[in-house]
Amino acid sequence: MSNFELSDSQSYVPEKSSTLPSSPAGEFIVQFWGVRGLIPTPSSNTSRYGGNTACVEMHVVGKRLIFDGGTGLRILGKTWQEMQQPLEAHLFFTNCQSNRIQGFPFFAPAFIGENCFHIYGTAASNGASIKQCLYDQMLQPHFPYPLQVMQSELQFYNLTPDIEVKLDDVTITTALINQTQRSVGYRVTWQDYSVAYVTDLHQNADQVERERILQFIQGVDLLIANATYTPPTSHNHDSADLLWQAAVNAALNAGVKRLAISHHHPDDHDDFLDQVQVDVKSAFPQGILAREGLILIVAK
């Protein structure tokens, strides 16, 4: 690992309901555990795409990487508990907003002493570190138990944009995606394969921001991006094309091979997202809408 501060031929498979398999050497696999933005939305109208907030797992040549810790992290944790073996993983947070960190207090493997988790994030807009943000949300009256009750080894790393984290032959690069939210994106590279996790695109980005993002995601095998949306009070299904267009334009302009749109708005029910899927594919044939349980194989 370097440049950051230590603080206190691609193929894809369709959705599977099975657990992500053990990753033998040479594999690069992505699984979605939470695909909802802003707030969890469990209901009969969101059962196909899922109601848990953001969490994506990547297996890269035996390394376990997690991106964001929304409520999908709880489901991932329950699956890991079934393995009944010591775990080491790396958790990367895009920002400290509640929908990105709210699953962490319910991440059961963090309460087991034999496990080790490396936790990465940038400073929030108020200057708080990722450790401080996770610590604060577990204080009374928000949560009954403080972070200190987690018995696993927790190592925190303060990231800044435009640096690299090296995990043997896997490289994770960061970039500032949204200045207002202080959100970062991640590009994971192994050999000639790469996946970009860029989930805070916004409609009002200026030309400098757009160029920086396009350079960051240039030519990736898989781009995971959000469908930009307006605040919940003004969400309007009649203008749905404006919501996913930023992600599609980025994929087209950067020569991305595959696009997965995630962070669906809480008001977007399954039937509506089905129609959005049709519209996205008409504009970008290799584009899909992510749903919980979806597994994509980047490299065999």
Rank of each mutant, 00 (worst) to 15 (best):
R291N: 07
K281T: 08
L6F: 03
V61Q: 13
E153R: 08
L20I: 13
A108E: 15
L223G: 01
M150E: 06
I75W: 02
L87K: 02
E5W: 00
V60G: 04
S125C: 11
N226Y: 09
F32A: 08
K131C: 08
P14R: 15
F4V: 09
A123C: 08
D8W: 11
Y49M: 05
Q286F: 13
I163Q: 11
S129C: 07
A175L: 06
P86D: 09
D267H: 10
D200R: 13
S152H: 04
L87A: 01
L176H: 10
Q148P: 00
D221Y: 03
D206E: 04
Y145D: 11
I172P: 02
V208G: 06
L38Y: 06
N178L: 11
T160I: 10
I224G: 03
A89Y: 01
P14V: 12
E5N: 05
G51S: 02
G69R: 05
A225E: 03
R64F: 05
G113F: 08
P231N: 10
H59F: 08
P141L: 03
W80D: 00
G34I: 01
Y145E: 14
W190E: 04
V30L: 15
A260C: 15
W244R: 02
Q84V: 03
R74V: 02
A227P: 09
N253D: 13
V61G: 10
T94V: 13
F216R: 06
G219P: 04
P42T: 12
Q148K: 10
D270L: 09
N45F: 13
L259E: 04
G62K: 04
L139A: 11
L296V: 14
A205S: 12
M83V: 06
A128E: 10
Y229K: 08
P86A: 07
M150I: 03
P42C: 11
L159T: 04
F156D: 04
Y197V: 08
Q218W: 03
D279T: 10
N158Q: 15
L91T: 00
I29C: 08
S22A: 06
Y229R: 06
L38K: 02
A254P: 04
P86M: 13
V149K: 07
